[in-house]
Design a protein around this nucleic acid. Structure first.
Length: 543
RNA sequence: GCCCCGAUAGCUCAGCUGGAUAGAGCGACUCCCUCCUAAGGAGUAGGCCGCAGGUUCGAAUCCUGCUCGGGGCGCCA
């Protein structure tokens, strides 16, 4: 049997058998599922129903033929195979198979769950990229948790990943930031369209002679101070960026170069004194301005240069994490990317839906401009990094997230994250009780040779652990870190049932194999730790 | 008007590249610590999976149309 992936071995047996029956063409859509009820076996396949039309036989008859061949292939790993319902093939695995499966997971050690990509890519994940004119807020927290977790997952799935923060340190907003700092330094109110928040006062205090300083210089220094503070918050939030790329760098020639390239490709025209990109050629509903009548480049032009710059840095794939308010920007960005010769499929623009910070049912506003903010730091102070990250990652990125502070605060002990962490700590406690030497000894045993008769709870737990590689793959492929939160919870739950039904330390007293149970517990601990790590959440040994 | 996202249990949401009797957490109610951590466990109640059609052996899942909610439609960034 394939020691590396017991589930793949089962799937392979089914697919190969199907190929023998109907030829290799008839396999698409074939799946190995985990059935909803124990009576339906450990694994089931819909293959018979898919093959039936091609074979011109009733699905259940096809299933019988398939069962025969699968039995031959799997031998002792299979307890029995049954045909059920409209034509499902249900497989019941033997203890022998389960023991070998645990042995395989244990043997993989900390690498368990790591998947080998068919196509290893160099990926850039650009995220947060919040304007450095205000403190990070809850939305920043969602973007940061998502981008970071996605990067962790892609790395674990075998890709080479770089994390970048694009700093918008250029243009009118930054200008207004400088003006606001100067006003505060002079003890005045910021301009109407400036930044009203108190943090501007703090920034002003940190810059000597701010009252008389040039606005551009003030803006520059202010941005650097904000960035420094952002970096601190991100570090606290366990988010690390490989690079901070400043928009201003692009205005020293990169933007002009990108525009010339577009012009050379014949996608640019002049009208009403402005230069336009013919994005309509690439599916946009209207053309977009590159340089204004004043001659100044638009933000769009800079962004084009930025993405061209990314391409030139040799990435196979660019993933940008954007806020919901940027969705209208997607088509034109992809259009520009394509106009420059890029493959639009290799530029992924992930749109994060909003975070609504609620306070006891009331909506808390999050406008950076008005300065009425619950900052990310305040959120972390309130509910902790682990809960904050887990909460932010629990939901799919394309659903609006309601985060009720009062609830998160009150329930911080009842939070799902604590449930998962508790399971981890509990296993740590069991292993402590057994002792390091006992555990090391158990892990070194030939578990496949164990005579442990698995309790249904143990079987359920093993099956959960075996899902890790597929979950990692799915989370990576679908850019869906939230999958790992559900999975982590499921594993914790499966362990709780195992803990309830099966004694680990002192297993011999109830006729069990302590070595096997210790190893299974250790493997579970690793899986939980891994799942949490991919989310950037800690896995404590004590709680 | 156009574009994006959503609509699943009282609340917040998983499940969505089609499978068997639709799940979790929280909330409500009833129980369980002589026993490796009760931050735990067992159970009960709670669903026209927004509506209407369509495709299919099979639809919460795919397609079309509608309804409602959120967001966006600058020579702002």
């Amino acid at each position: 049997m394939d020691a590396a992936d017991p589930v793949a071995e089962v799937a392979g047996a089914v697919l190969e058998s199907a190929g023998e029956l109907a030829g290799n063409g008839a396999r698409s859509g074939a799946k190995l599922d985990r059935p909803p009820k124990p009576e339906f076996g450990d694994y089931s396949s819909n293959v018979p129903m898919l093959l039936a039309p091609a074979m011109r036989r009733p699905p259940r008859e096809v299933a019988e033929q398939l069962a025969e061949r699968v039995r031959g292939r799997l031998g002792g790993a299979l307890e029995r195979a049954e045909v059920a319902g409209p034509g499902f093939l249900n497989l019941f695995m033997s203890d022998e198979w389960y023991r070998a499966a645990v042995a395989a997971a244990v043997a993989a050690g900390d690498d368990y769950g790591r998947v080998a990509p068919t196509d290893r890519e160099k990926v850039m994940v650009e995220f947060v990229s919040a304007n450095p004119t205000g403190p990070p807020n809850a939305a920043t927290g969602r973007h940061a948790a998502y981008g970071d977790a996605l990067a962790r997952i892609l790395e674990f799935a075998g890709h080479e990943v770089e994390r970048e923060y694009y700093v918008n340190d250029f243009g009118s907003q930054v200008q207004r930031f400088g003006e606001s700092i100067r006003a505060r330094a002079r003890g005045e109110e910021p301009p109407e369209d400036g930044y009203q928040g108190d943090y501007v006062v703090d920034v002003a205090k940190q810059i000597d002679g701010a009252a008389d300083m040039d606005v551009d210089e003030l803006a520059r220094r202010g941005v650097e101070l904000m960035l420094e503070s952002m970096r601190g918050t991100m570090e606290r939030y366990r988010v690390r960026f490989d690079t901070f790329f400043r928009e201003s760098e692009l205005h020293a020639g990169e933007v002009e170069r990108a525009l010339e390239q577009l012009e050379g490709a014949g996608h640019v025209y002049e009208s009403e004194g402005a230069r336009w990109l013919r994005t309509t050629q690439f599916g946009d509903d209207k053309d977009r301005v590159l340089t204004r009548g004043t001659g100044a480049a638009t933000y769009f032009a800079a962004d084009i240069a930025y993405h061209q710059h990314k391409r030139e840095r040799g990435f196979d794939r660019l993933i940008d994490v954007w806020g919901a308010d940027h969705h209208g920007y997607v088509t034109r960005m992809k259009a520009a990317f394509e106009a420059l010769g890029g493959d639009p499929d290799h530029l992924e623009l992930v749109i994060m839906q909003l975070v609504n910070l609620m306070e006891g049912g009331q909506r808390a506003q999050m406008s950076k401009r008005a300065g009425t903010i619950v900052t990310l730091d305040e959120l972390i102070d309130d509910i902790g990094v682990d809960a904050a990250r887990f909460y932010m990652l629990q939901r799919s990125h394309d659903t609006t997230l309601d985060l009720d502070l009062r609830l998160a605060r009150e329930q911080s002990q009842e939070n799902p994250v604590y449930y998962v962490q508790y399971a981890h700590a509990r296993i740590a406690s069991i292993l402590r009780k057994a002792g390091d030497e006992r555990v090391a000894d158990a892990l070194s045993k030939d578990l496949a040779a164990s005579e442990e008769v698995l309790h249904p709870s143990a079987r359920a737990l093993v099956k959960r652990l075996l899902e890790l590689p597929a979950e990692v793959q799915t989370a990576a492929d679908r850019r869906a870190p939230h999958r790992m939160t559900t999975y982590a919870h499921d594993v914790a739950q499966a362990f709780s049932a195992f803990y309830r039904d099966v004694r680990v330390v002192g297993a011999a007293e109830e006729g069990g194999d302590e070595d096997f149970r210790l190893a299974l517990s250790a493997a579970t601990k690793r899986v939980i730790a891994r799942s949490l790590d991919l989310l950037g959440v800690e896995a404590p040994d004590h709680m």
